[in-house]
Design a protein around this nucleic acid. Structure first.
Lengths: 352, 352
DNA sequence: ATGAAAGCGCTAACAG
DNA sequence: CTGTTAGCGCTTTCAT
């Protein structure tokens, strides 16, 4: 007779169900759940029992709606498949969770349109704040978010217009280039790829050029190469070919400063394929110090970023901002990178 | 006089603000926003203009509260720093997003307690469904979730009690071991670590043993090693020592089938440090085919899992389940793994 | 085609 | 110490 009730959502118990079961009012239940106000031990127990018996779970939507604030953070990341970012994402999630926040994650693939759309969705979810690992550089969307009163912290990428925590990219580049200079290299190339945000790339390249100049070496545009972004290894013909051409000739570079470990490792892979030996023929320095850089077989000399500090401070800045509700001026935190010397660098073949 | 109003939450515009601005009722605004019912073109335009003018964004909390269903998914992952899982997470996020779902991410660190707590939070957020990459094996929490009517799909790990999609682990092990047998190996070890879920580990080990037996080789407990989970490389003394002891002696293994690429790569790293050459002295086969396995310097022979298919089918199963609202019997999807032959395997030194 | 009204499940004054 | 009462911002019948 009656149509089969296709209820998939067997109604979740509400605070009212608990109240009835414990023979108290909604508010009392609410009070014991939130652990506020004074509730007599007996009432508390009755309520708690009722909660357990009917398996009640507060509805965060309803709570957040009335409180007009969620405890959810947005985490915007360009490429979760890049170990540097996945490690950072993991750390951020840990800190957020420890501070009582859940995390909605958005992978933007580095596309600004996608970034904007995802951020829009985060806003509709009324996230309490947004952590951006990697940032397209579109200051407008940032401004729009900030204008809405939603705090943003940019992690691992320096950004003027918002709270941010990042390593000193110039200093990092300096460490890398100084190391190469010290080894005797003079023709040092800067190799980057679109995986690195513009801001960051500029700073690293700036540091690279400045350090060269300071050593009396004039940077040459011929020694700058932009590689296609990963999916690296196998099947890809483009980057190896570009690298080959780049290294070709008598005054090709003897060392590569690559703006990011993933690309550095890809470059080494391509070099291997080309029969160019690292570091015998060419030295390579990366940036980030992702876990795999430490593998004996890769042993990539690189500029290490303090990932834990980045994530922790990022979370702290954001939490502080969210919970204080102040929107003072942006706070920039600069962290010091360190050079990790491994076996991808050595003195040049024929130092001059 | 008046205290500085510490309003951080400059009140977001509501549907009512739009209604007033457009001189219509709430319902009408709601109608045009959801694109339903018949709204006269003029009214629609007025509303849309008002929306744009005041920068209105629907409040998903309120919407979801009254609809009694969110469009948020929970993504539970053991270790986001493991490239296999971060790649999977990225793919799942992409599919979810394409189907109109947001993703809350939880890193459990493989700890069941943490898993349970996080899942509890997801439930309070009233997620529409949960994707588990990696699963502690605690069937109880799974059952509890399912009982609440929240669909779950386990991706990359076979699970009887819920929808799942995974490769045929036994078959994968068979591919790996058959490959080694074919090369002439007889003393083939099974190496695993706690990073692999119990279910999965059992299946892979089962396949390993069965394949050996079928070839007339009796599996020996002496040839099974459990390594400590990653944080690999550098600083770690434990695993290299264990490996050294394991390989020691005349009847040590000539080949390792490692249950997971990350551990396989760590093992190779340790082997390198021990002066054991791969594949000359020992062959190594991994499982997963993470991106870095393809690097020339690692060139890890491994059992590839079809990551994209895993993520896509996982998302499809879940979406279907969520949107149909039926809770029929669990559906298990088995995918075929494939062997990727690289240079970490070769004929044994002195075949017998 | 549009509007009025009744909640969704919860918190937060405010009374008792 | 506990209960009553207003909503939070939205969707959704049901009238008009």
């Amino acid at each position: 007779m009656a149509a089969k009730p296709p209820r998939s959502q067997r109604a979740e118990p509400t605070i009212l169900d608990v109240a009835r079961r414990a023979a108290v009012s909604k508010s009392t239940v609410s009070n014991v759940i939130r652990g506020v106000s004074n509730v007599s031990p007996e009432t508390r127990k009755r309520v708690l029992d009722a909660v357990a018996e009917i398996g009640y779970r507060p509805n965060a939507l309803a709570r957040d709606l009335v409180r007009r604030r969620t405890s959810t953070l947005g985490l915007v990341v360009g490429d979760l498949a890049n170990p540097f970012y996945s490690e950072l994402a993991k750390l951020v999630e840990q800190h957020a969770s420890a501070s009582g926040y859940g995390v909605m994650i958005c992978n933007t693939d580095g596309r600004p349109e996608s970034e904007q759309r995802r951020i829009g969705l985060l806003l509709e979810q009324r996230v309490a704040g947004i952590v951006m690992l990697q940032f397209s550089g579109d200051t407008d969307v940032l401004a729009a978010v900030l204008r809405r009163g939603v705090p943003v912290v940019v992690v691992s990428c320096y950004e003027e217009t918002a709270d941010c925590v990042a390593v000193d990219d110039e200093r990092g580049a300096e460490l890398a280039v100084a190391h190469l200079l010290e080894l005797g290299h003079r023709r040092i190339a800067y190799v980057s790829s679109a995986t690195v945000e513009p801001n960051t790339d500029d700073a690293r390249r700036g540091g690279y050029e400045r350090t060269l100049r300071r050593a009396g070496v004039e940077p040459s545009p011929e020694l700058v190469l932009e590689l296609a972004p990963p999916p690296w290894v196998e099947n890809d013909e483009e980057n190896p070919a570009r690298l080959a051409a780049f290294l070709d000739g008598d005054d090709g570079p003897t060392a590569l400063f690559v703006s990011n470990d993933l690309v550095a490792i890809e470059a080494i892979d391509a070099l291997d394929g080309l029969g160019v030996r690292v570091p015998d023929d060419v030295s390579v320095v990366g940036f980030d110090d992702i876990a795999m850089a430490g593998l004996a077989r890769l042993s990539l000399t690189t500029v290490a970023q303090p990932r834990d500090a980045l994530a922790r401070i990022g979370a702290e800045l954001l939490v502080e901002r969210m919970e204080s509700g102040e929107d003072g001026p942006p706070r920039q935190v600069r962290l010091d990178p360190t050079l990790v010397r491994r076996r991808s660098t050595a003195a040049p073949r024929a130092p001059r």
